[in-house]
Each structure stands twice: as C-alpha cells, then as structure tokens.
C-alpha cells in the first residue's frame, strides 16, 4: 500500500501550550483515514499542518516533519499556495463565499487561470456531481450560495474543494453541525471519492468513523494512542483508553 502522507515526531505548540506531542502516523493513498479523539486531542491541528493552514494561527511553533509523497512540506522553501491545491480542506462550519453557487465552485479553478467557459463549466458540474449536490442546484447556479441550507452549504464546500482537483482532501468535523440526512449524503459522497482521492476525516463521532473509514487513529491529549485498520481499532483495540473512548466513557 502506498503511503501518501507521513508525519514524523510532529510537535506543535501555541506559545507554551503543547498541542501535539510527537505524532508519527501514516496516511494511505485512496483510503479514508479517520482521526478521532476528544476535544483538545490535537486532531484538527494535525490536519491543518498538512496543508499549512496552521500558518494563519498566531505563535504556532512546529517541529518534526510532514512528508507528502516523500517531500517535506514543512520545508520553508515549499510554495504553500501550490501545496493547498494538492491538499484541499473542508471546515467544520460551512463557509460559502458571499457570491453565487457557480462562482463559489469556480473560485479555485479561476485562481489557476482556468477561465475558459466550457472547461470551467464542466469542472463545476463535475465537482457538484461528485459532492452529490448537482441535482439540487443545477437550475440555480447563479443564485447566492448563502441561500442554500446548512447541509447543502457543506456539500458546496466539498465541491469547491474538489474543483481544485486535489490529491488529498482533509475534512475537519464536516458533519458536526448537520442533520442525519445531510450527514448521510456527505458520507455517501466520501465513499465514492476515495477511489480518486486520499481522504482524512477528523470527527469525534465514533460511529461515523466506524461507518466510513478504512483506517482509524485515536488521539488523546496530543498523543497518538492507537492506529490501525478501522476494523481492528473498533473490534479489538489494544489500548484501554481507546476502548473507553469508543464505548463513550469519555470524550
């Protein structure tokens, strides 16, 4: 199996507060990897390092290494703008840009100078279809994205990320504010998407992790407690903490 992302002894702190205490983990290509753990476990910060969105946090210090396809992305020479095209991200709260549905999806492609009408239109359509949103919005691509429901907005954000044509998709608790039906739609979309993309899903909904991920990692207080195939982690965890978390004893 190919390793897509590898972190080595990754440490992160905000000022004096340690968020990640030396995390070494591999993310495999064309799989869905779930990161779970209670609030403050560092799982969200971990993925925000993977596309260098962490750069926008104030006084964050990072040490260790993060490789994508064998290249260290924490190297100061790396073009983080280019990195973010390869590693897309969907946030916990859907944040549509205040413009039309079409322009939201086209935002990324247009930055890459993909402006030609037909090519852009088919890319937008393709992305919306992959996010299972096309049928609901195909007649109103020019209306404001802010008028969509919360679930639709989150799928719009997924489609917008897909339009970047990334290799990796990072999702930071994408369903935390959504109803079960919207959640199901997103999960369905992710299941299809793993054929083409490497997906990292951060969630503290253990059932969701169990449902759709291939690999699962459990984090606690900035440390990776357990990592393995989802089946193994959920049926036969080797750590007591993992078991307690999965059974809902804390978190």
């Amino acid at each position: 199996m190919d390793i897509k992302i590898r972190t080595e002894e990754l440490r992160l702190s905000f000022g004096k507060r340690e968020i990640l205490k030396g995390v070494t983990v591999d993310v495999y290509k064309n799989k869905i990897t779930g990161f779970m753990g209670p609030a403050g476990s560092g799982k969200s910060s971990l993925i925000s390092i993977m596309n260098r969105m962490i750069d926008f946090e104030e006084n964050a210090t990072i040490s260790g290494r993060v490789f994508i396809d064998g290249e260290d992305i924490l190297d100061g020479e790396i073009d983080e703008v280019h990195l973010r095209r390869r590693v897309g991200m969907v946030f916990a709260v859907p944040i549509p840009l205040p413009r039309s549905i079409f322009d939201n999806i086209a935002y990324g492609p247009r930055l890459k100078n993909k402006n030609s009408g037909r090519e852009l239109r088919s890319l937008v359509q393709e992305s919306l279809k992959k996010a299972f949103l096309w049928d609901e919005v195909k007649d109103r691509l020019n209306s404001s994205a802010l008028k969509l429901s919360g679930g639709q907005q989150q799928r719009l954000c997924l489609a917008r990320t897909l339009a970047l044509e990334p290799e990796i998709i990072l999702l930071d608790e994408p369903c935390s504010g959504l109803d079960p039906i919207s959640t199901a739609k997103i999960e369905e979309a992710l299941n299809e998407l793993k054929k083409e993309y490497t997906i990292v899903l951060v969630s503290n909904n253990t059932k969701q992790i169990a449902r759709i991920t291939d690999y699962a990692a459990f984090f606690y207080m900035g440390t990776l407690i357990e990592y393995g195939t989802t089946e193994k982690v959920f049926t036969n965890p080797s750590e007591r903490k993992t078991e307690d978390y999965i059974q809902g004893k804390f978190g």
Binding site: N51, M53, F56, V81, H82, R84, R85, G88, M89, F91, V93, I95, L97, P98, Y107, G108, L111, K112, C157, R160, T161, L164
Partner: peptide
C-alpha cells in the same frame, strides 16, 4: 476572518 481562511485554503495568495 473565515472568508479569508476559506480563500487561502482554496489556494489563493494573500493578494488574491
């Protein structure tokens, strides 16, 4: 601030 963060995550530079 969210709008800026989204823009950066979609591979925009600061000026974009």
């Amino acid at each position: 601030r969210n709008l800026r963060i989204v823009s950066y995550s979609l591979s925009a530079t600061k000026w974009e």
